[in-house]
């Protein structure tokens, strides 16, 4: 049994410790907001926060997580809408298909937590998640909006 602290709740899961955290979250815990896109830390669809740091959960064996606090998209805000990043995403209507957006939002939230006033170059560096629908320009604008609204 492995104990996982996800969104403030401890889950006991009976799973091979080599299993990537992504699949434990999706299949053992049953929370599907965190997405699978590549499985090799390339696309960022599986991004979660581990002790505040944005992490590609497809490439983290669950056995290495220990007592760290995991936050998924479901735990970013209580109502799923009120985090400044979510509000900015709504205001600019960022999502198209939406499949990458859990990961994009988690990456943006981590960026702003660490760097409340990111420049365009900071955003280029931090936001390497793939969006096949091409919402990049709106993501950039929304990050600037969230940055302004949080200050």
């Amino acid at each position: 049994m492995i104990a996982l602290n996800i969104n403030g709740q401890v889950h006991q899961v009976d799973v091979d410790p080599e299993t990537p955290l992504l699949w434990v979250i999706r299949e053992w815990v049953g929370m599907t907001g965190t997405k699978f896109g590549c499985g090799i830390a390339q696309c960022g669809a599986c991004s979660v926060h581990i002790d505040g740091a944005v992490t590609r959960s497809c490439s983290v064996p669950v056995g290495t997580v220990g007592a760290s606090k995991i936050v998924t998209i479901e735990g970013l805000s209580a109502d799923g809408l009120s985090h400044p990043v979510q509000r900015a995403w709504l205001a600019h209507e960022v999502p198209q298909c939406g499949y990458c957006q859990s990961g994009q939002i988690m990456a943006a939230a981590a960026l702003l937590a660490q760097n409340p006033k990111p420049s365009d170059a900071d955003i280029d560096d931090a936001m390497s998640n793939i969006c096949r629908c091409g919402t990049y320009n709106r993501i950039r604008t929304a990050i600037h909006t969230a940055s302004a609204s949080a200050s």
């Binding site: 479901e74 995403w89 999502p95 499949y99």
Partner: peptide, 15 residues
Amino acid sequence: DTVEKLSGKQIFAID
């Protein structure tokens, strides 16, 4: 269809 896509609530077929 925006709101569900901000919170992980949108159920895609893979979910």
